[in-house]
Design a protein around this nucleic acid. Sequence first.
DNA 1: TATACTATTGCGAATATTTCCATTTGATAA
DNA 2: TTATCAAATGGAAATATTCGCAATAGTATA
Lengths: 169, 169
Amino acid sequence: MTIPYPNAKIERRIRNMGFRLTPQRDLILRVVASRGEHATFDEIYADVHTAAPHVSPATVYRTLETFGRYRLIHANEIAGGRVYELAGEDGHHHLICHKCWGVSRVPDAQVRKLFKLLEKQTGFLVLGEHFMFMGICPDCRREKGDELGRFSVYPKFRIKTKKRSKKDE
Amino acid sequence: MTIPYPNAKIERRIRNMGFRLTPQRDLILRVVASRGEHATFDEIYADVHTAAPHVSPATVYRTLETFGRYRLIHANEIAGGRVYELAGEDGHHHLICHKCWGVSRVPDAQVRKLFKLLEKQTGFLVLGEHFMFMGICPDCRREKGDELGRFSVYPKFRIKTKKRSKKDE
DNA sequence: TATACTATTGCGAATATTTCCATTTGATAA
DNA sequence: TTATCAAATGGAAATATTCGCAATAGTATA
């Protein structure tokens, strides 16, 4: 399987940071890349495990954590779970609707502008993180109201890991 | 122990949402309140356990999760760990410096303004979450530069749970 | 290319977190 | 008050995640 990195510079960045580019890491990055916008640990591990059964969950956890720290991968909490995506050229952030759970994007530049304003006021430079803003999308706003009732905070799904357990297959 | 809620309306809110205000929840909320800005699970559980040894970790986890969903408590990921704080009247967000790990605040109103702009552009209403913006504080910016080197992402500490294990105590 | 150095891995063991379910107990209404 | 009913709890079991450490294997250098 050869999934190309959307961003060919990643390899260089890894080495520049002083990390070793192991086959495991390479595979994991490709899997995350192939999964697109928001892959769960289980999805990632499943793919990795299919391609290379010997790779342990610990390695996947560690890799996501390590690269997450160094912003090669964006990790975000959403609906009670964590999702990952490859940090790409096309910086963008996500807007997630509490009601319909639709995901839309805002270009990074647009969000940066906001933080520029914040910087003017506080002197604090907000760095290149990836944000997931929760709220109500335009469509849903037209429907009812903006208030969150008792049963509407995580209405449709929760990111939950499904049993991985024993010698899976 | 009677730690007063900073916000007396909390009780009403809980009931309005249809939740029951049990002694356990009451205690947990008071503990979180007493801990101030960012308490870890372990800190919260330790306090709760001291005051009421029979309360199980599961209950604490559940309570934080439940009230987190409904915004009575703010849960945030920071430095690889999760911290909690009581959602108060004085809405504010945190600015956390990657270098010195100092924590400063921005009033909610200020941040809201930014999201208002976003709303104008996208129609998407960002809801009342609590944000922790990571970046470089004014002091540290004066020192060197803004870039994150290999060993500067989580320089000083990581929020880590300390062994709770067996019959603690 | 061979050597040395150390980051990274895999595995099992420790921890942490969630889930299950029988039991308890708020809250409501008679 | 008391009865009723579902929400919430506790404890144990199931899962998930991290950690410790010996073995492996990238990378740099000779």
